[in-house]
């Protein structure tokens, strides 16, 4: 009953997932659960395998062992994750020489979205990321914040249940960063599950319910409220070295 409950409740489950590159173990028998609607902050020291973990999560890398469940179904060998997951890389991932509209249409077609649905979806997304007025602008000519928002829109084109954001506010000025953070919150509030990999610990501390700490190939999911209780009056920035060590 317990497992049934967990599977029923969890959107994604990583069970004993191991990923090696040759003899080098990056993810070591890793377990990870994502509940629908979660906003999870993925933290860890540089070089601990966050990118590898995210690429496994988006289905880019096959795993060496373990299982990946989606809504309780084993999708380890089915490569279904790309359909479930939307991914925003640290750097924007679209064609700078295409317009916003063209980028969205191009990726929409690749996701097998019908023409009518795509049109509707583009309208929704552009509205959501506040780029409807600039839809015919060439992506390369957009501001940093706009580019970021376009990237979010593209990641959400196929209406993924889980959105993974890798350093979404890196390189942005505080105002734009705030704007992006608000957008993330907005997307999360729209029902999307979000995993943010970021060094912006204050944002994770303020917005995420759970942090996933990746260290030495293992992943620990920590409830942010528990952390606050344990380390009162201390920010995540302060306690990060301790929790990494512990």
């Amino acid at each position: 009953m317990y497992f049934v409950y967990i599977f029923y409740m969890d959107l994604i489950n990583f069970l004993g997932v191991t990923k090696r590159f040759g003899n080098f173990v990056v993810l070591d028998n890793l377990n990870f659960n994502v509940k629908k609607g979660d906003l999870i902050g993925l933290i860890g020291k540089s070089g601990e395998g966050k990118s590898t973990f995210l690429k496994v999560l988006i289905g880019f890398y096959d795993i060496n062992s373990g299982k990946i469940l989606y809504n309780g179904s084993d999708i380890t060998r089915k490569n279904k994750l790309s359909k479930i997951v939307g991914f925003c890389t640290q750097e924007n991932s679209f064609y700078e020489n295409l317009t916003i509209d063209e980028n969205l249409k191009y990726y929409g077609k690749l996701y097998n979205i019908t023409r009518i649905q795509l049109k509707k979806r583009i309208e929704e997304l552009l509205d959501m990321v506040s780029l409807i007025e600039r839809r015919n602008a060439v992506a390369g000519n957009l501001s940093g914040g706009m580019k970021r928002r376009l990237d979010f829109a593209i990641s959400l084109l196929h209406n993924p249940e889980l959105l993974i954001l890798d350093e979404p506010t890196a390189g942005l000025d505080p105002l734009v960063r705030k704007n992006i953070e608000e957008l993330i919150e907005k997307i999360n509030n729209s029902g999307k599950t979000i995993i943010i990999s970021s060094h912006m610990l204050d944002f994770i501390e303020n917005k995420c319910k759970t942090i996933a700490l990746l260290s030495k190939g293992k992943l620990n999911q920590i409830n942010i409220d528990l952390l606050r209780k344990r380390y009162p009056k201390k920010s995540l920035n302060d306690i990060f070295p301790y929790i990494v060590k512990s």
């Binding site: 988006i58 790309s82 359909k83 890389t89 750097e91 064609y95 980028n103 690749l110 996701y111």
Partner: peptide, 13 residues
């Protein structure tokens, strides 16, 4: 080398 190329690997193609 375009930033977009990675996304191409995420689509079901």
């Amino acid at each position: 080398h375009s930033q977009a190329s990675f996304r191409n690997f995420l689509v079901p193609v």
